[in-house]
């Protein structure tokens, strides 16, 4: 961290409780995850016998069995398909709309923007029932497209918010110069706006990727075919129905968590910035 806000402390009165709070919270965050990780290498009986003990041998079979019995390979591929398609579409549409809403000042612009911002406050569950009825009548329930469209729609408000506020801050001169050279607005969007938006685009992609990867309810409600399930829905079947074998359950949880934790280790800064951006301007 930089020097901002760092002020020398005169009294140690604040330091000890501060340190204890931090250690307590970090312990609380890490301990369950560490416990999950090492328990996933123990066979079921060993977990029942002693929940705390470290694995005596590395029982890797949990992973193999969980992967096979839980169909996790298939769900993994599905999750990647949903997540990357929806993320790409949402980001592109949000950049386009963001350019339109930031640089074209019509009377309707403000209305459309407010309309999207309102979407930040709408929870997916409030449209689940009508969405299901509508998708059924259009025969797109139980299809990949029927899953991806809601992902995109619910991702749009926040990404449009990010894109619009970023593009508003870009200087108008570049656009003017390109117009004088005879470029059209769509060319400007493609050749000038998109490259200039690289920083906010990476935040948008990362944010959309995480929320789509962890998304549960649309696949859960809008599909019934096993071949369409995503990883969170697949893992949910370990919650009781599929198996009472704790070792398998833990292995499945690690499989579901690990990609995101690795992603997080690499992109922590952008992830934190993306989430923080949601509330910075309010």
């Amino acid at each position: 961290m930089d020097a901002i806000g760092g002020v020398k402390h005169r009294s140690s009165l604040w330091l000890l409780p501060a340190c204890m709070i931090m250690l307590f919270f970090s312990f609380l965050t890490l301990a369950p995850l560490v416990w999950l990780l090492y328990s996933s290498f123990k066979p079921h009986q060993a977990i029942i016998r002693n929940v705390f003990s470290l694995p005596e041998t590395i029982h890797f079979m949990n992973y193999v069995t969980a992967w096979e019995r839980g169909n996790l390979g298939l769900y993994f591929v599905n999750s990647i398909t949903y997540t990357s398609t929806a993320t790409a579409i949402t980001t592109f549409l949000a950049l386009a709309a963001g350019y339109g809403l930031a640089k074209f000042r019509y009377r309707v612009t403000g209305i459309i923007y407010a309309f999207f911002i309102m979407g930040l406050l709408i929870t997916p569950h409030s449209v689940l029932v009508p969405l299901f009825v509508l998708e059924t009548s259009l025969n797109i329930d139980d299809t990949r497209i029927g899953v991806i469209i809601p992902y995109v729609a619910f991702g749009l408000p926040f990404l449009i918010y990010l894109a619009t506020s970023y593009i508003r801050g870009l200087p108008d001169e570049l656009e003017q110069a390109a117009l004088c050279d005879g470029a059209g607005y769509l060319q400007i969007f493609w050749r000038i706006i998109i490259p200039l938006c690289a920083p906010v685009t990476s935040t948008m992609i990362i944010f959309a990727f995480i929320s789509n990867w962890n998304e549960f309810v649309f696949v859960f409600v809008l599909t019934s075919k096993v071949v369409l399930r995503s990883l969170p829905v697949g893992i949910n079947s370990f919650a009781g129905g599929l198996t009472r074998d704790y070792g398998l359950q833990f292995a499945a949880l690690v499989i579901g968590t690990l990609p995101m934790i690795i992603f997080y280790i690499f992109f922590h800064d952008q992830i934190a910035r993306g989430f923080a951006a949601g509330a910075i301007k309010g």
Binding site: N214, P232, V233, I235, N236, A239, G256, T257, F263, F275
Partner: peptide, 13 residues
């Protein structure tokens, strides 16, 4: 860190 983990995983854990 927990914010990046799927709610389903957090719940089962």
């Amino acid at each position: 860190l927990p914010i990046t983990i799927a709610p389903v995983v957090v719940a089962i854990l």
